[in-house]
Design a binder for these strands. Structure first.
Lengths: 143, 143
DNA sequence: CCTCCTAACTTACCGTGCTAAGTTATAGGT
DNA sequence: ACCTATAACTTAGCACGGTAAGTTAGGAGG
């Protein structure tokens, strides 16, 4: 049906997003991107928006908008950095931490299921994916 | 750096889009999504918007907007279907055909390069990608 | 002939990505 | 003490995805 690897990769990520959305939306009212943002804030600990943007691989304006929205849900705390400077300090609220932990468990279980059924080796596929990313990054650096 | 396969897949598709954009934008003024749309119209021949949406894996409103924009560039011809009904018939103009052919060649060459360098087997990776999509689709069908 | 169903398309609105340009807070040189 | 440079964040506006609800053309039944 579809013939091209790059096309299939887009289809795959779209399906993954959708599957994650179906799990997260009814249970927590979170989109996949919002969950990811919270997840990284949890992993990074108190973090600036700039650092979070870097970790998420998105632009600073995207993070600015996202954190604005998430702060309104009570899952994320965003205040001025006490260390000073024009920075904001992002942390999870207790309910944010709880939501992230539950979402992660749910998603990991479901995804492990899917990989299991597909017969694909998680390790091999993950390794190849990272190699492709690295090759693309190299190509970019050349200019 | 990043730990999760689904995250890396998003990174990979984002990088692919960006690389494609850098090639297509200066040379043809096309985004990757627009190129893809034109490519499928070329492959499917005269086609309705509904069928194109199905082939692209996107919604009908998306195609409606996209074809509206592309029709304004002179690459795509969109008129009422002579067979009647509330349908539109999409075809490539001669310059559309030419642009698609040139873009495809360019992108395929560049992408083959990247895969080559990464050391990843195109065939294996493509097969695994399709298997994962199939596994996700199965899961969906169960409900 | 008129009504109503269905399929295809459109409109309206929103989420989330981007870039470009504007703002603000600290730091450094004179 | 006052510019100015820099870093972090915000605002504005576009691209392109989605859903929900509206429109329109053709066909089927009373």
């Amino acid at each position: 049906m579809s013939h091209d690897l790059t096309f299939d990769l887009h289809v795959l990520t779209a399906r993954l997003d959708r599957a994650a959305e179906e799990i997260l939306q009814p249970a927590f009212g979170l989109s996949y991107r919002r969950f990811l943002t919270l997840l990284l804030v949890g992993e990074l600990g108190p973090v600036t928006q700039r650092a979070l943007a870097e970790a998420l691989g998105v632009s600073e304006p995207s993070v600015s908008r996202m954190t604005g929205a998430l702060a309104g849900t009570g899952l994320l705390e965003a205040g001025p950095d006490p260390a000073g400077g024009n920075r904001r300090r992002l942390t999870l609220t207790p309910s944010g931490k709880q939501a992230v932990a539950q979402c992660r468990d749910l998603l990991e279980r479901r995804f492990a299921d899917v990989v299991e059924r597909s017969g694909v080796s998680y390790g091999d596929y993950a390794r190849d994916t990272r190699r492709l990313i690295a090759a693309l990054d190299d190509r970019e650096d050349e200019r």
